[in-house]
Every structure is written in C-alpha cells, then in structure tokens.
Design a protein around this nucleic acid. Structure first.
Length: 282
DNA sequence: AATCCATGCAACCGCCGCACG
DNA sequence: GCGTGCGGCGGTTGCATGGAT
C-alpha cells in the first residue's frame, strides 16, 4: 500500500497555478493568527483548494515578511558564487546566509545569470595564467570571485590543506572533487551557527515592525505589515539571535560590509592562508 | 503587425530525512 | 525495527514578457 498523495485535500480537486491576491490574503491572515507550520492543516482550515506544500512554498518564497525582491547586489552575487563553489547547489544553506533572499530566488538567479557568467569566464580563462591574470584584471568582484573559485587551481594550497585535514589521500591532490567535498563537510559543521530560517523570520518580524513593505500587492502588504508581533515573539527571536551571533571568520567575511570585491578577495586569501598554516583551526 | 525566440520567475514534482506511533 | 506522515529541498517545468527578425 503506497502512501496517499500528499495533496489530495480530502478528495477535493487541488487548485494549481498562480496564486490570486484573494488566496494570498487568506493564507497570510491565517498565518498571522496561527503562525507558520502545520501546513497540512492550512488548506483544511482556510478552505484554500491548495496543496499544503503549495501553501508553504507560497509563504516562504513570496509572502513571508522581510523578503527582499528585485536585483541582486554585487555583494550578494559574490556571496552566492563563493558559497556555491563551496557547497554546491545547496540553495537552502546558501539562502541561510542571505536571510532576505529565498532559496528559490537564489536558485533562479544562479540558473539564469550566474551559471552563464561562470561558464563564460571558465571558457575565457587560460589554465596556465588564470590566477594572477584574472585577479588583477577582472572587471568586478563577481568575476574575480568566479575566477578564484571556479578555475581549479590544481594542487592549490587550499585544496591540499583541505585534503590533509579531511584525510584524503595525497594522490587526490589536483582533483577538485574531494577537496570540494571536504570544504563542504567543514562548512556543514558550521551550519548551526549560520542564521537559521527561524532567525530569518525573526529578522523579518523586526523589519516588519519598522517598515512598510514595498510589495506591489497593496492588499497583501497592508495585511502583513499591519501585524505587530508580541514582545514574547520578539524576545524568543532575540534569544535565538544571541546564540547565533558568534560568527566564524568566514561568516564575517561573507557578511562584511566592506567593498564586495575587496572583501571577497581578502577573505579568500585569509582563509587560504589560515587554512594552510593551521588546518585544524580552519 | 505578426511571429519567433530568449529570458525570468513562480510554481510544481519527486525524493529524502526526520519524528512519531 | 518498521511503516507512515509531514516538512524541506533541489531539479524542472510552464507561462508571461520583452526583444529581435
């Protein structure tokens, strides 16, 4: 006996396709009353003819307070490129470092913009001299970032150190995959210190206390921004924030407010140097 | 003006991991 | 230990839009 479909909604037909403003309002007002979560009950309690997954997705990707829409900044672009190089297509993990952006947004942006940019630069870059040539002549931070991360610096210090730290055999030096895996594993161990989705929600709460959202949908905007979170909700969020404020060097680097290009370059250099000097600390 | 094509983005689908009984 | 249900994630699709021909 297989699992029943998650979205049969009690046998009623499930609506698909774009959400209407009316549906958005119903969903937002329900979440304002009950909070996000228990998505299974949302269609049942609201009368929305939508799959629970669809409700969750609509909330997290579009309706949730604090979401920043529109063009990505060069700084954000650099962060995404760096993290994609480190983590691979772990969009949720990457999004946790950009709380105002959704994983879907980041994924879309990568697929439509950054992937092409990376590919183009990979094709342009020559193996022998890519490193110094591109770090000195690339026209912006993102391109520098791409060339730093995507052109496999065979047997780079970073790769070697990572392989040593993670116990990879020396023979794998030069093969980017094990090193990338090692970096990924290390990064995963840091993930708990990264801003969590709940933390992102908390930031959203605070943001919504202070600003009127500029969302195009006026009705939805007024409903979401009109809500004021209770002091206990904010304090709960603040407690979590306190546990999340111990940033690692890498996080400081990623979230640094200095010029994006310089921050990315300096950060990468520091990490490489630190890692090679003392892989354990890294 | 009509058609074609590329692009961007919202939403869907299928799989996986975890919690729970 | 096993089955089930749910939430979450990543890949993919389909539609709307705008530019090119």
């Amino acid at each position: 006996m297989g699992r029943p479909p998650c979205c049969d909604n009690g046998g009623a037909s499930v609506k698909k396709g774009p959400w209407t403003p009316e549906e958005d309002i119903i969903l937002v007002s329900y979440i304002q009353q009950h909070g996000p979560g228990n998505w299974r009950s949302v269609p049942e309690n609201t009368g929305l003819m939508r799959c629970s997954k669809s409700c969750r997705l609509r909330w997290t990707n579009y309706l949730r307070p604090g979401i920043k829409r529109g063009n990505f900044t060069q700084h954000e672009e650099g962060i995404i490129i760096h993290l994609q190089a480190l983590l691979g297509n772990k969009w949720a993990a990457i999004a946790s470092y950009l709380p105002q952006r959704t994983d879907n947004d980041i994924k879309n942006y990568w697929n439509t913009h950054l992937k092409k940019k990376v590919k183009r630069l990979q094709q342009q870059t020559h193996p022998a001299d890519h490193f110094f040539q591109h770090t000195s002549t690339a026209t912006n931070a993102a391109e520098q970032t791409i060339s730093m991360n995507y052109y496999n610096p065979s047997s780079s210090n970073l790769d070697s150190a990572m392989q040593a730290a993670m116990g990879y055999p020396e023979t794998t030096t030069g093969n980017v995959a094990p090193a990338a895996m090692a970096v990924s594993k290390l990064f995963q161990s840091w993930m708990p210190k990264a801003p969590s989705p709940e933390m992102a929600d908390y930031k959203g709460m605070v943001a919504m206390q202070e600003f009127q959202t500029d969302r195009e949908d006026g009705a939805t905007a007024s409903m979401t921004s009109g809500h004021r979170f209770s002091s206990s909700e904010i304090l709960a969020g603040r407690d979590e924030a306190a546990t999340a404020t111990t940033f690692s060097v890498l996080e400081n680097w990623l979230l640094d407010d200095m010029a994006p290009g310089q921050a990315a370059m300096d950060g990468l250099m520091d990490i490489s140097a630190g890692c090679c000097a003392n892989p354990i600390m890294f």
